[in-house]
Nucleic acid binder design. Structure first.
Lengths: 213, 213
DNA sequence: CGATACATTGAACAAATTCAAAGCTGGTGG
DNA sequence: CCACCAGCTTTGAATTTGTTCAATGTATCG
């Protein structure tokens, strides 16, 4: 699949000539499940923009276990904190499924685009949006609210990912996730089976997580 | 108390002349408990930097209740998302104790400083730090880990705020908070009473929340 | 000395995780 | 083509963690 860079909101303000320059300093890379995009401690040289797939961000604990900080499963900048601040990556980014990533050489990008107020505004807005979404993600209290929110906002994900991966994204066990989906099905709000997933009653669904912003 | 603007990390790179200009476009405002700094929906005209006190950020639910998004209790920019993005405030900021806030006229600030790469870098770094801290705050699972982390990182707060306010900051009930403190005291890790609060065993304290980054 | 606000404690309750077991499903080799 | 197997999903029961509710304790301020 070909990706149109101009359809990425971050670059939507660029004209054709600028898009051409952007293409020259970037490439679209396909990663396989388990591939590492960058390691904790790496000095950042690239701006990564997830186009498709699932990427998890984690740190190693003192032991051999890891702590997952975040999942990305929609288009988003990854690890931008490090490259924008020119500090080492504070966590590792690993593809949790086959993923497609736009990789931009940061030095060239900074030289060409970062002084462009439209781009820098877009980047600030991107950071601001991320802050808002992180603040929002601290709200939904119950597991049902989290499930209902995801179903409403991104039901496509149910066709793309195994349930245990979605459960991990929502930071709950597969068991809890399964029980919540079952409840939604029993109440006639959704319908799902092998290969299909449908929302039957959007209004009832909304009521499951309203007042969670 | 007089605040030295140059001691604020955000402005640490400014020279004396720039600091003078900053003083001319800003003022230090003392708010009382319950005062509103800005309302959800307000168009932002000022950059707010909390110097001292406790500020809560919340939204109104569909009903008359509110949902608290965040508390600020150390030096930090407040509501910067709105002013930097020039969009209405997405939530209300209310002082939860008497608080001191540096209020900067944004238009003048933008004109004078925003093109300054040192300042814009500091702002980007500030946003980046906020993202990191928000990501981190999604981690500490148990209430004990949250309490131990706060005791370690900011034991001063126990001398400044009532326990029920600290419990609210940690998003737990006063009962749970009290029980966790009691446990820490019983294990000889901390000592507290009317007017004092001390850490007795830093190592044991660390072990209470290590692997929470 | 009250009164009010805050803190602590105990017991019942609710939500989610953990553990264990059983049920599906899709791919592979016989 | 079918049986099997590994990986994933679902279900149930026990357990853990934190909240809620109720009661009691404590401190401070008029």
């Amino acid at each position: 699949m070909a990706y149109a860079l101009e359809s990425i909101c971050l670059f939507s303000s660029l004209n054709n000539e600028q898009l051409k320059k952007l293409r020259q300093m970037s490439s679209i890379v396909k990663f396989n499940e388990g591939n590492i995009i960058f390691y904790e401690g790496d000095s950042p040289s690239y701006l990564y923009f997830l186009l498709e797939g699932l990427v998890k961000i984690y740190k190693y604990d003192n032991k051999d276990s890891i702590t997952i900080l975040d999942y990305y499963y929609t288009q988003a900048l990854i690890g931008e904190a490090a490259v924008l601040g020119q500090i080492p990556h504070s966590a590792t980014a690993e593809c949790d499924t086959n993923s497609t990533v736009l990789v931009v050489e940061y030095k060239k990008f900074a030289k060409e685009f970062l002084h462009n107020p439209q781009i820098s505004t877009q980047i600030i807005m991107h950071l601001v949006e991320k802050i808002k979404s992180l603040q929002g993600s601290s709200l939904p209290r119950t597991s049902m609210q989290k499930v209902a929110k995801l179903v409403h906002e991104n039901s496509e994900i149910f066709k793309k990912l195994k349930k245990y991966k979605i459960a991990a994204i929502l930071n709950m066990t597969p068991e809890t996730f399964s029980r919540n989906l079952k409840t939604l099905k029993k109440e006639g709000i959704i319908s799902y089976g092998s290969g299909f997933f449908d929302i039957l009653d959007s209004d009832k669904l909304l009521r499951k997580f309203e007042n969670c912003h």
